[in-house]
Amino acid sequence: MFTQPIGVAHYLVVGAILFVCGIVCMTTKRNTIGILMGVELVLSAAILNFVAFSQPAFRVDQEASLGIDGHVFALFAIVLAAAEAAVALAIALNYYNNHSTIDVDRAQDLQG
């Protein structure tokens, strides 16, 4: 295990686990903040993938690695995710002001 060099696939596995955790978090949590945390996990899985794909030393076909493009993509994803989180929180606060709860199950005014 520790003698084998690490490859893109290893990173992809970690990313996949994060992704699945995020998806499960989004679907099972009843709390708005919890759902947002799931989203963060999914985004972080994607960023992890980008970073892994950018490293040529992790793979055989080095020339197909994303290089700096992957890094830039990851950076922008981080920034956008942060922005999205800010807005989502503002909306959650607004919702809380109107409903006094952040439980999405109680969001029943609209038929769903």
């Binding site: 992809l12 596995v13 099972t28 793979r59 055989v60 076909d61």
Partner: peptide
């Protein structure tokens, strides 16, 4: 539901992660 979903997604995503031999790392892939 969550457990079923986890099972299904992992069953899809993990084989996917390992599906490309080139990506197993420099030595292994070679």
């Amino acid at each position: 539901i969550a457990v079923v979903m986890v099972g299904l997604s992992l069953a899809m995503l993990l084989p996917m992660a390992w599906s490309v031999p080139d990506w197993h790392g420099p030595a292994m892939g070679a």
